[in-house]
């Protein structure tokens, strides 16, 4: 019973904390650019605003357009329930492993791409085709990084993954591959640019151009959660630490350590974003190809035991 309650608590915490990460990244970026910038809480204000706004839906859109935001959010929430934050024995542990995580994300993305095509706007089509192009290149890298980690633990189970372990060459390479993939998956520079107003250069944003109001809020929230999960994966590989017991006191400590590690990743992402220009679209293949190669080397290293 406590475990079920903790699982729900975990999902709620993901919802509550994940917008903060984006706010933090934006704040750091603005400060580096010698600007005061928006409040660190701005993503929360945006969500509140969007939830209270009316929605405009194209007359040609079908049920897919309306359903997609819910599916996207549901898939991210399901993924967040799989991640062990508080609990070392998740009630959902038999529901999925690390590989399931990849497919759960893919489900949300698939419906977002369908919804983007649904309205028939030219930007939706462009955005969907680019997003699929990028994710088809990102997924192999992500898979290999996860294989490398799984090989070290002898299991694809998330619980094995969150056990304490020493940092090896293989895990560093896997973390690097994960980091590159995360930049692509969270639509950040050098792959995509969240801040742009240039509709022709957008990837992820172009898919969302037709969304407004509550649906947009759901989509934004789901991408915040997805970002936090990906950051968690990197953090867990680079700064490994074992799960605490079921007692509540170490759990809260562990949660703080968990947050701190994610914040470090956020700072690195922010610094990467201000110091690079966005790549030409077709260069993304090279970039993610590099992540793929890192993943392969990580797998080989894991098999060699280094």
């Amino acid at each position: 019973m406590t475990k079920t309650a903790l699982t729900f608590l975990q999902i709620i915490l993901f919802i509550a904390v994940s917008p903060f990460l984006s706010g933090l990244i934006t704040k750091i970026k603005n400060n580096v650019r010698m600007r005061k910038g928006q409040s660190i809480w701005q993503p929360y204000f945006n969500l509140l605003k969007l939830f209270s706004k009316q929605e405009v839906v194209s007359g040609t859109a079908s049920w897919i357009f309306r359903a997609a935001p819910f599916i996207a959010l549901a898939s991210c929430l399901a993924a967040s329930a799989l991640i062990p934050v508080f609990i070392f024995v998740s009630p959902l542990q038999r529901m999925g492993d690390l590989l399931a995580l990849i497919f759960i994300f893919a489900l949300g993305r698939f419906f977002m791409a369908l919804a983007a095509l649904d309205t028939g706007s030219s930007f939706g089509g462009m955005g969907a085709s680019r997003e699929m192009f990028i994710s088809s290149l990102a997924e192999p890298g992500l898979c290999l990084a996860i294989f490398a980690i799984s090989l070290q633990f002898g299991s694809t189970s998330i619980l094995a993954f969150s056990a304490s372990h020493a940092v090896s060459i293989s895990s560093v390479l896997a973390a690097a591959a994960l980091f590159l993939v995360t930049l692509a998956e969270t639509s950040r520079i050098p792959v995509d640019n969240q801040e742009t107003h240039l509709e022709l250069t957008m990837v992820h944003e172009a898919m969302l151009l037709e969304y407004s109001g509550r649906s947009l809020a759901l989509i934004e929230l789901s991408s915040y959660i997805k970002q936090m999960i990906l950051f968690f994966l990197i953090a867990q590989v680079v700064f490994p630490i074992g799960m605490p017991g079921a007692a509540l006191a170490p759990i809260s400590l562990w949660f703080l350590w968990y947050l701190a590690r994610i914040l470090i990743i956020a700072v690195v992402v922010a610094l990467v974003e201000v110091s690079l220009a966005k790549m030409r679209l077709f260069r993304v293949a090279d970039f993610l190809g590099f992540a793929f190669v890192l993943g392969i080397i990580a797998v080989v290293c894991a098999m060699l035991g280094v």
Binding site: R33, M34, N193, E195, A277
Partner: peptide
Amino acid sequence: IAIDVGFSYPHAYASI
């Protein structure tokens, strides 16, 4: 030109 390729630091610099 810098901000159109998402390179925000020089853009901020140029704005100043």
